[in-house]
Design a binder for these strands. Structure first.
Lengths: 131, 131
DNA sequence: TTTGAAAAACGAAACTCTTAGTATCTACTC
DNA sequence: GAGTAGATACTAAGAGTTTCGTTTTTCAAA
């Protein structure tokens, strides 16, 4: 009786919407729709459908206020970032975060500045652990 | 007359197959099928279809040898790793690789050892650039 | 040269994802 | 309380993904 393995990852459009909600904190269908970039012409009902799906998948909850729903993420962006990285690491980097970083820092398009920032992050984390 | 932006990313099953091909270097439908993990019971024709799709999408080429096709990746794993990281960075990390690494190194499940490896990688890269 | 096993080609069913039209509901106004 | 504007609910079409059955081809062995 194995639970159908539900994907814990967002689809393309779901991520697009969650990104807006993370930025807004919370919002109605209209709020999210208005937040979408220029040229992204999506029908109101489409946006409503996406948010409904996100609620079904429990990425957001909604409370009713007057006649409209206000949607709030149940999963923080940080947490989803971590989840996505774990997934990518597992699927493409043999579950070895170091090899993921290796690929990242060997990318020529990475700036010197970004590289410096990365080292600072790692150093800080190492200091905190041992301190 | 803009070219319809075709996704340059592999689907779930396509990635599964490319992973086998990357490990094998090259192989037939049978080779890849045999390489799949225990319990992954996939019909021969399914595997053939996936490889055909990968060929259509130009992730692999094939040459005929006797009556069978031998498939070879056209895209190295390294290159696809870079591509995937760029995509994730753009979609979820505001195109800022440092923030991606930040999320990675702040993950509690990351071992001290992995952290050390990561710093070594970054240091080596910084040395090479300035040396 | 027939034939048989393995491979490839073809076609399509089942499913998910994305989008949106139509119908229904809800709260406010007259 | 009837009308209306704006919201939600319902339904579904179209595209892409995953899977595999059936048909056709191909090489080699009898």
């Amino acid at each position: 009786m194995r639970q159908k393995k539900k994907s814990e990852l967002l689809t393309e459009v779901e991520l697009e919407f969650m990104t807006q909600l993370w930025a807004l904190g919370e919002g109605t269908v209209r709020d999210v729709l208005d937040q979408l970039p220029e040229g992204r012409n999506l029908a109101y009902t489409s946006a409503a459908t996406i948010l409904k799906i996100l609620e079904t998948k429990e990425f957001v909850t909604s409370k009713k206020e007057g006649k409209r729903h206000i949607f709030t993420p149940t999963l923080a962006k940080d947490a989803y970032q971590t989840r996505s990285l774990k997934d990518l690491s597992a699927k493409l980097f043999d579950d070895t975060p170091a090899s993921l970083v290796a690929r990242l820092v060997n990318d020529d398009s990475l700036t010197e500045e970004a590289l410096g920032q990365i080292r600072a992050l790692v150093d800080r984390r190492l200091k905190n652990d041992t301190g």
